[in-house]
């Protein structure tokens, strides 16, 4: 409970900072970058619930991101359905698919889930690419409409900024509440020891499936936000490399850390913007970062640096 209160205060400070940023920043480019940070934070958070807390890895998370984006694109553009109706459809589609993919794979241990989700991600990407009549194929899907409520359209970057970060804040609160509840404890118990969790009465398979479905829903929502911001989507955004990018965000920011997701997403959104030559070395950098962080700071950057700091202080005290 104490932790939750602290978290609420942090959320409040964060909301104030985000509001100030949203109001004060005039530069459209900066606003756009921050919108993408927000979408990536939501993605990282969704994977962190699964990977950081429950200890189950997904190497195909971009597939759910893509399912959200494509579902809303197809419904709202091809079929002219209001995006607000496409939203539940997108989220529900991702959840249903997660349920059917997760059921067989989640009953097994880490390696199988990883391989199953890896394959799943690749197959979904092939479908985006090959099902040309519906998805527009490799060249992408154009003409996705902006979001509107009545006559109010989220058509400026500033308005979209507030929409995205509002959603992120909402999920910060929701995720913290889940983690601090009976469900969150059961998830962390599964992470620490699946046998022991079952032996105290946790239905481990069901619990893992639930969090997998929730995680897919969040990723799908991120895809929805992405599609209606950029109005154009193509399969490349949801490729295997994109899944790895999400894993990297979680690993860098820190597994089992809600604020770590924000840090990881920020770093991985900003780095490509800052480093001009980044594109060619992107894969090598992600790969190297994943290996180095896992070997030297398995708790992620935030906790890792804190640990190093505390250890050096202890040494100095002696």
């Amino acid at each position: 409970m104490i932790r939750t209160d602290k978290h609420l205060i942090a959320c409040f400070v964060f909301a104030a900072a985000a509001t100030a940023t949203g109001l004060l920043v005039e530069n459209a480019y900066y606003l756009q970058v921050m919108i993408f940070i927000g979408i990536n934070t939501l993605l990282a958070l969704s994977l962190n619930m699964l990977m950081g807390y429950a200890g189950q890895i997904s190497l195909g998370h971009a597939a759910f991101y893509g399912i959200g984006a494509y579902t809303t694109a197809i419904l709202s553009t091809t079929y002219n359905i209001s995006p607000w109706l496409a939203l539940p459809a997108a989220v529900f589609t991702a959840m249903a698919i997660a349920y059917f993919v997760g059921r067989p794979t989640l009953r097994l241990t880490g390696y199988y889930l990883a391989m199953g989700t890896l394959g799943f991600g690749i197959i979904v990407n092939i479908i985006f690419r090959e099902w040309r009549s519906v998805t527009g194929g490799a060249s992408g899907f154009v003409g996705i409409p902006p979001l509107e409520i009545g006559s109010f359209a989220f058509d400026t970057d500033r308005r979209y900024f507030f929409l995205v970060w509002g959603v992120v804040l909402f999920f910060f609160i929701i995720c913290r509440r889940i983690i601090d509840s009976r469900v969150g404890r059961a998830l962390r118990a599964i992470h620490d020891g699946e046998h022991a969790a079952a032996a105290v009465g946790v239905d481990t398979a069901k619990m893992k499936l639930k969090i997998f479905v929730l995680s897919a829903a969040m990723a799908s929502l991120a895809g929805f936000l992405y599609a209606h911001q950029i109005f154009f989507i193509s399969p490349g955004t949801f490729s295997f490399l994109a899944s790895i990018r999400i894993v990297t965000m979680v690993v860098i920011g820190g597994m089992a850390s809600i604020w770590g997701s924000l840090l990881g997403a920020s770093l991985l959104t900003l780095l490509p913007e800052w480093l001009h030559a980044f594109a060619d070395y992107e894969m090598m950098i992600y790969g190297l970062v994943l290996m180095l962080v896992m070997i030297f700071l398995p708790q992620g950057l935030t906790r890792g640096i804190l640990d190093i700091y505390e250890n050096s202080r202890k040494k100095n005290d002696k």
């Binding site: 009976r182 469900v183 404890r185 105290v200 009465g201 946790v202 639930k210």
Partner: peptide, 11 residues
Amino acid sequence: VGLHTRTSCGI
């Protein structure tokens, strides 16, 4: 966590 089966709160 030991109280898991004696409580009911879901997601």
